[in-house]
């Protein structure tokens, strides 16, 4: 069985991020659970966690991480605390993406992460950056501002996100708050190619497209959209696809249709509602323009992916998040983003 375990791990190494990679590593985890040591099972899960997260299976990451945490708590001397807390940081970055988790439950998790950072001597910088993001996407602007300031003041250490990711989030804060020029200025080091990492600049590109249209920088937007399309691959970029579809809905409807056809399946199978919500915002904007005319061309998407379904599902998700967050921010966001695309259409 050790041989099969090694084979699976090496096979996974050769696979791009996606469902197959996750399935292969899941089998390795099963084998390790059945026939190998707890430590083997722990490290198999560490690889599985990363692949699950990068492939858009956040709920699988949560399960895998919970198991690793339970083992770590039992025998902390056996495992590397840095790696585990790093994964914990990922967890607090995604937990709010599921409206099924209540506000109190999420607050408890953030508190537990903060406790762990202090216990192992790490700066609270990642804690503040993640809780800032949670506040921002939940529509709690004042809290987001407070946490943003705490984040900028907290010292940078080895547990902090990489510089490119942080710069991206600084810029995103301004863009999400409607300060387009300031946001774009902040993101300049990324847009000019000076800062990058595994998910940057593709994530950044997707955020700046509509703001660029808003300030009439159409050529720059078109250039970055092309770059962005080239870089996005696989099911792990649902949010980015959604934003790109929204942008192309405004500028090149046929391109938007093509992109929708090649990515809609990801939105159907994905379980992370925030990512699906972001995707469906783009899809809703697309359908609102696509359905304006009678078209010969039939969209090659799954029969369940209709404009009616997109509308109903995006509204259901917005309500689900708002119920959790105790406001109407997501319903407003949905309407605002769709209107923005319609208002800025050039095609």
């Amino acid at each position: 069985m050790k041989q099969r375990y090694d084979e699976l791990r090496s096979e996974a190494w050769n696979l791009p991020d996606g469902k197959q990679k996750v399935t292969v590593l899941e089998e390795a985890v099963r084998i390790a659970d059945l026939y190998m040591s707890k430590e083997d099972a722990y490290y198999a899960r560490m690889s599985y966690s990363e692949a699950a997260l990068m492939s858009g299976f956040e709920e699988r990451f949560i399960v895998s991480f919970a198991w690793c945490l339970s083992q770590f708590e039992k025998q902390p001397e056996l495992y590397d605390s840095h790696q585990l807390i790093w994964h914990y940081k990922w967890l607090i970055g995604i937990i709010w993406r599921f409206p099924q988790f209540g506000a109190v439950q999420i607050a408890d998790i953030y508190y537990d992460f903060k406790r762990m950072c202090l216990q192992y001597g790490h700066s609270l910088r990642p804690y503040y950056s993640k809780i800032h993001m949670y506040a921002l996407v939940s529509g709690h602007a004042e809290l987001a501002q407070t946490y943003y300031e705490a984040w900028r003041k907290a010292p940078y250490d080895a547990m902090s996100d990489c510089r490119a990711c942080e710069q991206n989030m600084f810029g995103y804060f301004h863009l999400a708050s409607g300060r387009y020029k300031r946001g774009l200025q902040t993101l300049k080091p990324i847009l000019s190619g000076k800062m990058s990492c595994r998910s940057i600049p593709q994530n950044t590109y997707s955020h700046v497209l509509m703001p660029l249209l808003e300030i009439d920088q159409h050529d720059e937007a078109a250039k970055l959209a092309r770059k962005c399309s080239r870089m996005l691959k696989g099911p792990g970029y649902l949010e980015e696809y959604g934003r790109l579809i929204g942008y192309y809905a405004a500028t090149d409807l046929n391109k938007a249709a093509k992109l929708l056809e090649s990515t809609a399946a990801y939105a159907i199978s994905n379980k992370t509602d925030w990512n699906r919500f972001q995707y469906l915002i783009g899809a809703k904007a697309f359908f609102s323009l696509w359905n304006e005319k009678k078209r010969k061309r039939k969209l090659n998407v799954h029969s369940s992916f209709t404009s009616e379904w997109v509308e109903a599902e995006s509204e259901r998700l917005a309500r689900a998040f708002d119920d959790r967050n105790g406001n109407e921010y997501c319903q407003g966001l949905l309407a605002h983003k769709v209107n923005q695309v319609r208002k800025r259409r050039t095609c």
Partner: peptide, 24 residues
């Protein structure tokens, strides 16, 4: 298979993560 794994993890988790896994 995945849910089987989740159930097994549920049995080993602390209270905080037990409730998280119930949701999953």
């Amino acid at each position: 298979n995945f849910l089987r794994m989740a159930e097994q993890t549920r049995a080993e988790s602390n209270e905080l993560f037990g409730s998280v896994l119930d949701v999953v």
